[in-house]
Write a protein that binds this DNA or RNA. Structure first.
Lengths: 209, 209, 209, 209
DNA sequence: CATGAATGAGATTTCATTCAT
DNA sequence: GATGAATGAAATCTCATTCAT
C-alpha cells in the first residue's frame, strides 16, 4: 500500500531540491541567478547529485516551479469543488491568492505561467512549456470553466461564452492581484482589502450580465 | 544648473545602444541573456565605449527598456489628450496595445514594469525602480487618471474612487492582453477581436457603475 | 605456490568487461574517453562491481587491451609454429594483420604497445608497462626470433644478428600496415594488396641478405 | 613592411601558447591530460585569453601540434632540397630524426600524424585532420617523392612506382625509429647507431632494386 | 573619447570512486 | 559478492569589466 498515486511521488532528493528552489524564489531570490550549488547546499545534498536526477540547471528550476504551481492548482481545484455558493468560492479564491501572495514571487510566477507571459528566462520558459504540454494541462482552464458553470447554474451570471467568462475571470483576478502588489510595495492604497474584494466581485458579475 | 532639460536627448551612441537592446528584446531574446558585446556589436561601437556612458550592463538594459517604455507612455498620453470620446479613446488604447504587441516581448515588459512585476532579474529590476523613482514617474497613473476624468465628465462612468478606477482599467486592459497572448500563441479563440474589444469595454463601464 | 597457472582464466564478469572495452575500441571510441559506466553498462554489471576486480579505471582498460593483445600474439605464435615455409608464414602474418585490421583501432593499439609508443594516456601506458613487465613478456620478440630462425634454416635469409632481423621484420610489417591504413582512409593506392605483399616480402628478404 | 609573409605569423600570444603546448609534450606530459590552465600559466597569460584565439581546448592543442609538425616538415624539406647525394641526404634525415627524437614525444606524434595513426584522442585527431585538409597537405608526400626522384636520377634505385617507393621509405624510417625507441627505453641493443643507419640504408636501397 | 585585447572570478557539468544496503 | 545512489574534486568555458593605447 505504499504508493497508490499513478504519477508516483518524486524521489526524496528531488523533493528536497524542489523545496530549496521554491524557498529561494519565495525569499525573493532572482530566479535567473539561482546557482546549482545554492540549490544543492540548501537541499543538503552533493552538487553532483543534482545531475543524477536532472540534466541541466534549467530543468531543475522549471520542474520545481511547475511542481509548486501544480500544488497551487490543486488547492484552487479543491476550493472550486467544495461546497459553497459561487460568491463564497470567489471570495475564497481571492483569499487563497492573498495568502499565497505573501510568498512573494511565487504568485507572480503562477500568474505569468498561467497567462503565458514571457519574462522568465527564455530557456527556462521553454522548459516550462515543454512540461506543461506533456501533461496536456488545460487543468487551469477546466477549473475556471467548472467554477463558471456553477455561476450560471445559480443564475448569478448570464453570459455563457466560455471565452468571455475566462476573460472576465482573469480580469478581476488580476485587478485584485494589482491591489496586492501595491500593498506589497508599500503603496498603501486608500482601500481596505474587503472593499477591494467587494468591488472586484461586483465588477466580475456585472461584466458577465 | 547642470541639467536643465530634464530629458535632454541622449548622445547618439547611447541611442544606438538603446535601439540595439530594444531590437533584441523584440526579436525574442531572453533579456537576462543579452551580453554587453551583443549590444555594442549591434550598435556598431566598441565594447569599451559602453562603459563611457553606463557603469554596468544592468544599467544599459534598464535604461534602454525604460526609454522604450517612456516612448510608449507618451503615445498613450497623446491618445488620451487628443480629441475624441471616452469610448473612442478606450478603443484606440486597445488598438495601440494590439499594434505594440506584435513586437512581442516589449509589451510584456511594459506591463510588467508598470504593474511592478518582478520576474526581471532582480538587479535589473532594481535599476528600473531606481530610475522610475528618479523621475518620480507616476506618469502612467496620471495618464489613467486623466482618462478616467473624461469618463466621469461624459457621464459614462460614475465611480469616482481613483483606486477602483485604476483597478477596473488594469483589469480590462489585462483581460484584452490575455486575448492577444492567446492569439499570439496560436490558440485561436472563438472570438473576433471586435467582440473582444466590445466585451472589454462593456465590462469596464459596467464595473464602474 | 600461490599462483601456479600463470594465466588462469579471468572470472566471467572480468571477461565481460574486457569484451566491452575491446568492442568499444574496435568501434572507434577514443580510449581516453571511455567511462567506467560505459564499460559496466555494456558488460551488463553494476558500476561498483568493477571495483571488486580492479582498483582503477586505467587498470581495467589496460588489462582489457593487454588481454586482447595477448590473444593476437597467441594467434601469431600459432602461425609461426604451424607447418609451412618461411614465405608462406610471412604471407599468413600479413593476412592476419589485414583481417585484424578491420577492427580498426585495435591493431593500432597493438602496434603502438608493441613498439612502445606513448600516445596512450600516460597513466594508462604505465599500467600497460607494469603488466608487461610482470609477465616478463618478451613473447613477441620470441615469436619473431623463432620465425627468423626458420628463415635462416631454410637459407632464405643470411643475416644472423637478431637485432637487425627484428628491425627488418618491423620495417616491413609497418610498411604493409601503412598500406592498410591508407586503404582504410579511402586513399586507394594504385597497388593491389597482392602486389603490396609481394613487394614487402621481397624487401624483407633482400634487406637481410 | 611589417608583415610580408602570406600566411601572416600567428599573434604573439598564440605563439606563446603553441610553445607552451610543445614544451609540455616534449617534457613527456600526457597530451590528453594537458589542461587549459597549464597552457595559459606556462604562456604567462590569462586563462580567458586562450578563448580569444581558440574556441576549445582541443583546437589549441591540435593547432600547436600541427604548427610544430609544420616546422619539422620544413626542416625535412630543406634537407631534401639542399645539395648532397642521395645517400648523404638519407643519412641527414636519420640524423634529424635522432635529434628530434630527444624531444621525446613530439617525434612520436609526428610519425603518428603522418601515418594517420589514431591514438590521439579522437576529437583531437579530428581537429588535426580538419586542419590538414585545409592546407591540402600532401606536403610530406611531396618531400618524399622529390627525394626519391633524386635516387632514381642518381641511378641508386630502379623502382619507379611511387607507392612502393613510399612504402620502402616509411619502412626503413620506422625501422630506424624502432631502434631509437628502444635506446630511449634503455634496452641497449647490441648495435651501434652507425650500424643501424648503415643497415637501414642498405635495406632501403635493396628493397627498391 | 573610443577601443578591444586581456583578464579571472565564477558557473555548469562530468565522472571516478566509495560505501551502505 | 554485487549494486548503484551519492559525492565532490576538477575541468572547461563565459563574459562583465578594465585599461593601455
Amino acid at each position: 500500500m505504499e504508493e497508490i498515486k499513478c504519477s508516483s511521488a518524486p524521489p526524496q532528493k528531488v523533493l528536497l531540491m524542489y523545496q530549496a528552489v521554491i524557498e529561494m524564489v519565495e525569499e525573493g531570490f532572482d530566479v535567473n541567478k539561482i546557482k546549482v550549488s545554492d540549490i544543492t547546499a540548501r537541499a543538503g545534498i552533493g552538487k553532483g547529485t543534482a545531475y543524477e536526477y536532472f540534466s541541466s540547471k534549467e530543468e531543475i528550476i522549471a520542474d520545481a516551479i511547475l511542481y509548486d504551481v501544480q500544488g497551487k492548482r490543486e488547492q484552487l481545484s479543491r476550493i472550486v469543488k467544495e461546497d459553497g455558493s459561487f460568491r463564497e468560492k470567489f471570495g475564497k479564491i481571492l483569499d487563497y491568492m492573498t495568502e499565497v501572495f505573501r510568498e512573494k514571487e511565487t504568485f507572480c510566477l503562477l500568474v505569468r505561467i498561467s497567462t503565458g507571459s514571457y519574462e522568465i528566462s527564455e530557456s527556462l520558459h521553454r522548459e516550462c512549456e515543454k512540461r506543461q504540454q506533456d501533461k496536456g494541462c488545460r487543468v487551469m482552464e477546466d477549473i475556471v470553466e467548472c467554477f463558471m458553470r456553477q455561476g450560471v447554474a445559480e443564475g448569478v451570471i448570464k453570459e455563457r461564452n466560455p471565452e468571455l467568462q475566462k476573460m472576465a475571470f482573469v480580469a478581476q483576478v488580476i485587478a485584485f492581484a494589482s491591489l496586492l502588489v501595491r500593498r506589497e510595495k508599500g503603496e498603501v492604497p486608500p482601500l481596505s482589502m474587503e472593499q477591494g474584494k467587494e468591488f472586484v466581485y461586483g465588477a466580475f458579475v456585472k461584466s458577465l450580465n
